[in-house]
Design a binder for these strands. Structure first.
Lengths: 80, 80
DNA sequence: TCCGTTTATTGTGTAAACACAACATATGAT
DNA sequence: ATCATATGTTGTGTTTACACAATAAACGGA
């Protein structure tokens, strides 16, 4: 299993799977498959999605579950 | 074309393709194919190799050619 | 109510990333 | 000279990440 934050970043930016798919040049279903972990992306696609969201690949895909955003916020000392 | 620094890091650590292949769980030929750019790795394999070398994926794979190490050293202000 | 958008699901087809085997070549050590 | 190691090349087979099409369900807006 490969975990990812695609849906998270997509939600934050308010873009649909279709829009993300077009931005990175794949089929909309492919984004869906990735989000539910049905299959693992190529490095190429992973890099394109990371570039689209302007995050490091390591922050987008992980073999261990991602820390909840709430925990990251606390760890970052975010008051707001 | 996808550029990579696999051979570079392998040379620096003095390990063979066979040894790297065993460390990341693939066939030795697969490392060879990757090094010459004959094919592009899966995200999974890319992450394993990056972990093995303890570098970020972005420092290991790139769609644009890598800056020569000499240039990086100068940019880093490395005297030695 | 009807309609557009988003998302899920299922099916079929293809290209490419792998595994594995065999063989050639070069080099370095003994 | 011989042997082990590293690398390159070629070939065959399998798995899976993709493309694409069709359909259904849920939701919000006009």
């Amino acid at each position: 299993m490969l975990y990812n934050r695609i849906a998270l970043f997509r939600a934050e930016r308010g873009i649909s799977r279709k829009a993300l798919a077009e931005a990175v040049g794949v089929n909309p279903q492919t984004i869906g498959y990735l989000e539910r972990g049905d299959y693992k992306p190529s490095l190429e696609l992973a890099m394109k999605i990371a570039a689209e969201f302007e995050v490091a690949i390591e922050h987008l895909f992980s073999f261990t579950p991602f820390e909840p955003v709430a925990a990251v916020l606390r760890r970052a000392g975010d008051a707001a």
